[in-house]
Design a protein around this nucleic acid. Structure first.
Lengths: 223, 223
DNA sequence: CGCTCGATTGAGCCGCGTCAAAGTGCGTGG
DNA sequence: CCACGCACTTTGACGCGGCTCAATCGAGCG
């Protein structure tokens, strides 16, 4: 197993935002790597030796069901951590949505840090807990919302994460959105058109979304 | 709604295992408490001061959407831990599916143990990670499976957890199953009837399920 | 014995998936 | 610079699975 000679430095989290993974006071610096659009970053059942953080671009984590259909569990934007597993192998795959730069840290280094520092251990726990909460939220969306509601909720969530909430460039295709929301491409497309017709959004191009009426979106999103 | 003697499994008081919450080598002992069928154990947005473990009976964790429909996130059977949160308030509610006995431990005690013992901290992390994996699995079921497939998958999962896989007494109603699988009561009922017609299971009574053909269940469950 | 709550069964409808066909933007090569 | 091809998106027609509404059945309890 290759050693990545990671060093730990106490520095303000803001400054270290994209150099490594921050656990409480310390930041584990990692190695930078680039992936092209649609490349696999790691696959399910591979040895889970590294934990990743997005520097630029967007990443999707996904798994496949028996018949080959894919389910996108989450999208990861700059600053987000993914690939954090306790088991020895990844339970899902990760792929580059766009051209992407990531920084990766050996899992063993994270575990060592957690074993020696209660604050770091707690930070790891918080990461897992946040992911859990997000997964619960996702299950709620899939279980309880109709097609239009899912898309509206997705747009609101992306708007909050990407931009100043008025205008954004979606990094992912309709197919990605469909596989995240458990819909078909056609249904997602119809939902976009419908929201444009109701003047809740504007679509200068397919992936460029302008939020025109936040209130309308919110009422569409209500299950 | 009086006592329904839902004592599904005459569990011999299998002692120490159900006296508290085990974290690695140490076990934090807790206080025992009982709840009647359908009682709330804790509610979303309450202060998350305790972590719970099921001693006997069954518990559901759930949340409500804006329009009042409920989504059951998971069922918890004897030995399972629930109510473990990192935030200061619970993000979901917990209710007794049947008459139930739980043991509860102060969250502060768990955190103290984790801060002083790396093995305990790792055990906590594993708990969160297992829950995350389960939530991902649930999202996959909701997103990718049809009605019959969901019910078959649910039955197989319960069979593995409850019994020696041949025969079991479900602690929850059709309504609970429906709200877990994001279906209606009627659709769940039809799925049961269908599986009985195909001789995959037998239903001596509504909640008593006998698995007659495990292979048939598996092929039904395949998405 | 009758009440009540849960489960089952049936009829009809609607939303979303499926299949099919244009339409759009972009890179590539002539 | 334009023509072409390819990938992605949009739009339409249609069928089906699961939800809605409604009636019946069955078991436990007063």
């Amino acid at each position: 197993m290759r050693d990545l000679h990671l060093d730990t430095q106490g520095r303000p989290a803001a400054a270290a935002a994209f150099d490594g993974i921050t656990l409480g006071r310390q930041t584990l610096r990692g190695v930078h790597k680039r992936f092209e659009h649609n490349c696999e970053i790691f696959g399910a059942d591979e040895r889970a030796d590294y934990v990743y953080r997005v520097v630029s671009g967007a990443v999707r984590t996904l798994s496949f069901s028996a018949d080959g259909r894919r389910q996108i569990l989450a999208f990861h934007l700059p600053g987000d951590v993914f690939g954090f597993e306790l088991a020895d192998v990844y339970t899902y795959s990760a792929e580059a949505v766009s051209d992407v730069e990531v920084v990766l840290v050996a899992r063993s280094a994270l575990e060592k840090a957690a074993a020696n520092d209660a604050v770091a251990a707690r930070a790891l726990l918080k990461m897992a807990s946040d992911e859990l909460h997000q997964a619960h939220e996702h299950a709620l969306v899939l279980g309880r919302k109709g097609a239009g509601e899912r898309v509206a909720a997705f747009l609101m969530a992306m708007a909050k994460r990407i931009s100043a909430r008025r205008e954004m460039e979606l990094p992912m295709s309709r197919a990605d959105i469909a596989d995240h929301l458990a819909l078909t491409i056609e249904t997602v497309s119809r939902a976009f058109t419908q929201m444009e017709r109701e003047a809740a959004i504007a679509l200068p191009s397919a992936r460029h979304v302008v939020v025109r009426d936040w209130g309308a979106l919110e009422s569409l999103q209500a299950a």
